[in-house]
Amino acid sequence: MFEWILAGLILIGALFTLVGSIGLYKLPDFFMRLHGPTKATTLGVGAILLASALYFSFKTESASLHEILISLFLFITAPVSAHLMAKAAMHIKLKQVKRTQNPQ
């Protein structure tokens, strides 16, 4: 049972990581590409880290919580770096796809 939960978490995490990179690969302009890595990849790594925390907690039979630290750090820094990259992209006036509503 425990193994199933771990396997599910790891698989979901890896799939979300892949989805984030697929977004990075196929979407047409920078601002749209930004969405994939900031959301999907962060959650994917979060799920993998959660699985790791559970695994080592059960293996050593004492709470192993330092993985939470990386997840927290990623969840705080991912939007910050996304914001800065978007700001930089707006600053150098990167082109956007034509159908963007209300372009800047």
């Binding site: 990075l24 920078f30 590409r33 930004l34 880290l49 990623l74 930089a88 990167l94």
Partner: peptide, 22 residues
């Protein structure tokens, strides 16, 4: 463009974290 490359590098960092944890 350069922002695309920065974003790709950032994604690579996060992916490598996932790979290391795995």
């Amino acid at each position: 463009d350069i922002p695309d490359r920065i974003l790709a590098l950032d994604t690579l960092y996060i992916n490598s974290i996932a790979l290391l944890i795995l």
